[in-house]
Amino acid sequence: MRSILFATLIGLLGAAALHILIILAVPYFTGNDAYTRISDLGEPLRFYPLPNETVAGGGLINDDPEMRLAVCALSVAENPVRLYAPPGVPFWSVGLFDSAANEVFSMNDRTAVAGALDVVVATAVQLNAIRKALPQALSQSILVEMPDEDGYVVLRTFVPTATMDEAARAFLANAACEAIDQGTLE
């Protein structure tokens, strides 16, 4: 009797573990993970604002009416990437994620230099080269090591009133997600 109970318990635990593993692996095998969906928006290294209403075809949306979001797919395989946006909104935050949706880095306007977004994302080798010959243009930039070559960025800004919507949209439109030419670092 004891061995039947033990076998049943092991079977249930194994089935539960297998069930959880399958649920967690579904986005990877379906190509419906966040990185793939953001990459499908268009060219990499460009911020794409997300609409606040459902679009035909079921693309990505921003479901918070008091926030405006933009996303950018990036790769640091060839060159480091600079994320930049001038100040101009009461609040913004940025999150950097690897291709598996693990958060690598986040910050907001309160921790930024003069309220501007200025982040350089690079591999460990690229960061060493940047630190050796730090160009004046990057002297105020926050340097972030990307453990994976591919990832994405989510830039958010708060819109507490309708009168601030235009400023929030302009902030996202002026945000840059661009490769840094290695020649400028040497």
Rank of each mutant, 00 (worst) to 15 (best):
L138A: 10
A168S: 11
D33V: 13
V159S: 03
M107C: 07
E66Q: 13
L134W: 04
A129M: 09
G183C: 10
V89Y: 03
R68V: 08
W92K: 03
M164R: 09
L21R: 11
N79Y: 04
F105Q: 12
A129T: 13
E178F: 09
V125W: 13
P27L: 08
D40S: 15
M107N: 07
L41M: 09
T123Y: 05
P87C: 09
P27V: 14
L96Y: 14
N108V: 10
C72D: 02
G58N: 05
Y152E: 02
F29C: 11
D165L: 12
P147G: 10
E178C: 06
T157Q: 05
V71W: 08
L127C: 03
R169K: 13
P87H: 06
N52V: 06
P44V: 10
I20D: 04
D118I: 05
S106Q: 15
R131H: 06
T8Y: 11
A56W: 09
A114L: 07
G95L: 03
D33S: 11
G95P: 00
G59Q: 03
L18I: 12
A25H: 07
T111P: 00
E186C: 02
A129D: 03
L74G: 00
E166D: 08
V55I: 10
A129Q: 14
A16H: 15
M107T: 13
P87K: 15
A170V: 10
I130F: 01
L45T: 07
P80N: 02
N108S: 10
L41R: 09
A114G: 05
F29Q: 15
R46C: 02
I142S: 13
R131D: 05
V144K: 02
D148L: 08
G183N: 12
T54L: 12
R169G: 05
T30C: 06
F171A: 11
F6M: 14
F91H: 09
D118A: 03
G42V: 07
M146K: 01
D40N: 11
M67N: 07
A16D: 10
V113L: 12
W92C: 02
L138I: 01
I61L: 08
S3M: 05
A175L: 06
N128H: 05
D118P: 00
D98G: 04
A17M: 12
A122E: 05
A85P: 00
F29V: 15
D148N: 12
R169W: 00
L60R: 10
A34I: 14
L74D: 01
L21K: 08
T123I: 06
